[in-house]
Design a binder for these strands. Structure first.
Lengths: 230, 230
DNA sequence: CAGTTGATTTCGAAA
DNA sequence: TTTCGAAGTCAACTG
């Protein structure tokens, strides 16, 4: 990885055209050819960038550019398309290269897949007398996250990390479809999420859909053979 | 902006939990408190990060951490939530700070600038017998998007992506000014946009301003030497 | 000012 | 390989 702090102007042409006026910025050149142009603010998104795989060519400025005080020109080209990032460098204030090696990668925890696995294992969190039928129950309009057998019939569960209106709508469509199947009907809907927004709760309740808030930490604890219910 | 190359492990807890095993990475600390953890590959997204506003606390390792070879601990806390990024640093290979100043920001040449260029090239879309005088014609109250010569005199064009009342008002002010210039008068107004709202159309018509709806896709097609009118 | 939509989205998993 | 959906999405636009 090469890190350069430089006064530069940047222009990108590709799916759109964008331009950055002259200012001091960080230029990051990654091992796979990716180039990132960062300012000293904003979130994690660079001002401008080139996605890998890409290759960079450094050239001298032409007469006009040299006249304008430009010392070198970086041309970064994508290998898969004709996207191009052109960086006109006026002055370099810092330039260093570093060997980083390949990264072992991120381990994520607490995504929807985790929740689904845990709820399938702890299906009693839907209430007493529930048993798992299957996960990812296929329907023509997509898979139902969890299908269970409850005391009063079948239970369809829509699972989200954050429960929003969209999730309720999705579950409603599933329920309509599932209730046409005489082998399953009547099918009750359960909207389960770590956090359920008030609007979603209101809509769900209005449609006779039960809301269940899941405590991920607690479920994780119970899974690891350390039940919190004792 | 502070740039650190270090052997480190990182863990994030907040909306989810994520962990990065020990490896050499770039740590970027921005002026607004944002912290980015980058590897030497991937696109612009960091492996892990903290969004601004945030604050960082550097502490010594506890006994157990020191035993594991950790030399210092960075704790980055979000100010708006209880999200936390913890970086355990084993060894620092590079450490430098740089003053960047505030960035003037990105200029996107999106559809709007494109529209002006295309209409200038395809000025006949205003009607037969039109020829371009200039783009961005300067006036004391701002530049007129396009000035053209029409069959009945000068034509001033105000260009918008979405034609709203505001645009008509703007054009009206230009027209009043331009019509005082005996070299240009009489100046006809044309309000050109991809979409013109009914209210804007009514107002424009009432003021004798002609409305022209532009088909961006069609204009783009004609530009690429692949005219759709054949 | 809140809700909605697009992104040079990126990223991963499943088909 | 392609497609599809989620994301610690973010940022701009619209009402």
């Amino acid at each position: 990885m090469r890190l350069v702090i430089a006064d530069c102007s940047v222009s990108y042409s590709g799916r759109l055209n964008a331009h950055l006026p002259l200012a001091r910025r960080l230029l990051m050149v990654k091992a796979d050819g990716a180039v990132l142009v960062h300012s000293d603010g904003g979130s994690y998104k660079p001002l401008n960038w080139m996605s890998p795989p890409a290759s960079m060519r450094v050239t001298d400025p032409d007469a006009e550019q040299a006249e304008a005080g430009i010392s070198e020109v970086w041309t970064v080209s994508a290998e898969k398309s004709d996207d191009e990032l052109k960086i006109l460098i006026s002055e370099i204030h810092h330039d260093s290269s570093h060997e980083l090696g390949t990264d072992p990668g991120l381990v994520k925890d607490g995504v929807e897949a985790d929740l689904q696995r845990l709820l399938a294992e702890q299906i009693e969190r839907l209430g007493e007398g529930h048993s798992l039928i299957r996960r990812e129950h296929p329907t023509p309009i997509g898979p139902v996250d969890i299908l269970a057998k409850g005391p009063g019939g079948t239970v369809a569960v829509e699972l989200k990390r954050r429960g929003d209106i969209d999730g309720v709508e999705q579950l409603t469509r599933y329920l309509e479809l599932l209730n046409r199947d005489p082998l399953l009907a009547p099918v009750e809907g359960v909207f389960a999420a770590q956090q359920i927004k008030p609007q979603a709760r209101t809509l769900a309740t209005d449609r006779g859909i039960r809301c269940v808030v899941l405590d991920y930490t607690e479920m994780k604890g119970e899974e690891s053979g350390n039940p919190t219910l004792f």
